[in-house]
Structure formats: structure tokens, C-alpha cells
Amino acid sequence: MSAAHGDGMVIAIERLVAMANQIGDFFAPYPQGQREEGVRNHLRHYWDPRMREALLAHLDANAGAGLHAHVLAATRLLRDEQQTARKAYAGPPPRG
């Protein structure tokens, strides 16, 4: 595996996809909208940026293969920094 700066995948993508889907599973019972925001906020506040970038790269390169539909939507939301609440976040999606 490449060890050069910036080259290597921070964590194997299969594991990241599985982790993201697990987060998606938790938010699945929430109404649409809240559900995607929940996943997005969790990724934004708990994941190392390199892990998020890897997920976004997977979105571009492989259309996010393996991600559940609402996790895929949430990953797209990650792109838009403006939409990301920077305030402390620990739980449910912010109420609309």
C-alpha cells in the first residue's frame, strides 16, 4: 500500500461504506429529510476529514456503490459545507 503523503486511502473503502451504512441504519426510522441530515451531521462531526473525502471520492468514482439510498443522499449533502451546522451536535437531526 502506498505510504506517500496524501496518496493512500485512509481506511479501506469497504469498511467506510459499512460504517456509513451502519449510521444510516440508526437514522432509518426518522422521517425523510431528518434522516439524511442526521447521517450527514454525524459524518461531519465525528469522522476525520480524510474519511469523509474517501467516501466522497467513492461517490464520484463508483457512484457510491454499496451505500444505502439515504446514506448516498446524506453523503451528497456533505458536499455543501453551508448546509452543515457547525454547532455542537450529538443526537437527532435538528428539527426543521
Binding site: 502506498s2 493512500g8 479501506a12 465525528y46 476525520d48 480524510r50 474519511m51
Partner: peptide
């Protein structure tokens, strides 16, 4: 300003060659 790696993520990243 960005969150860092969690302990299990550090080990995963070590295996991927990005954590030394």
C-alpha cells in the same frame, strides 16, 4: 477545526499505510 481519527480508525489507517 476538523475531527481526528478514533482509536480503531487509527489502527485501520495504520494498515492502510497512512498512520505511522
Amino acid at each position: 477545526p476538523e475531527p481526528g481519527l478514533r482509536l480503531p480508525n487509527m489502527f485501520d489507517a495504520a494498515l492502510a499505510g497512512t498512520f505511522k
